[in-house]
């Protein structure tokens, strides 16, 4: 069962493991990313970042969607992490159902405009977030669980 579906371009890092992990206590962190999944050293880097308290699994987007929809993780509470809006939409289009996505970290880079302190998007990403909103999904932008809950649906449509 996915208890947190998060867009975060830093993947598995301290905010996710310590910040969210301590609060929601998942059994496993699933990182779904085709680029990370293609490189052994990157898989090892992020799997080790989950630390001793949580299991971590790195999968391709298709594997993650297939396994979650197929019930492989039904007996576990999982965090599902993807790097950006396009990857989130891809997973949704492969059948994963959710009512909410945590847009927790899209950090500043050239060409991105600010939506909140921790969420910056370019025009393409804004368009993809708009497509996600059209599916009836709430986009909320907390970096950490104790932050004020900010919904950004109106800022991407």
């Amino acid at each position: 069962m996915v208890i947190l579906f998060r867009i975060d371009d830093r993947f598995i890092h301290a905010q996710v493991v310590v910040g969210w992990g301590r609060r929601l206590k998942p059994d496993r962190i699933v990182l779904a990313d085709d680029l990370v999944n293609a490189e052994d050293w990157e898989k090892e880097l992020y799997a080790s970042a989950a630390g001793p308290d949580f299991k971590a699994t790195v999968l391709s987007l298709a594997e993650a969607a297939g396994q979650i929809v197929g019930g492989v993780f039904d007996s576990e509470k999982i965090f599902l992490l993807v790097r950006g809006p396009a990857e989130a939409l891809e997973i949704l289009d492969m059948g994963l159902e959710t009512t909410e996505i945590n847009v927790g970290g899209l950090h500043f880079r050239e060409g991105r405009e600010k939506i909140t302190e921790n969420v910056w998007v370019d025009e393409g990403e804004r368009g993809v977030l708009r497509d996600i909103v059209k599916k009836g999904i709430t986009l909320e932008a907390r970096a950490l669980p104790g932050d004020e809950r900010v919904t950004i649906n109106s800022k991407v449509v």
Partner: peptide, 16 residues
């Protein structure tokens, strides 16, 4: 500062 943090991943990526 922190094994498993974003700074570590970033630096490994930058210097690998």
């Amino acid at each position: 500062d922190y094994f498993g943090g974003s700074c570590g991943a970033l630096c490994v990526r930058a210097t690998r």
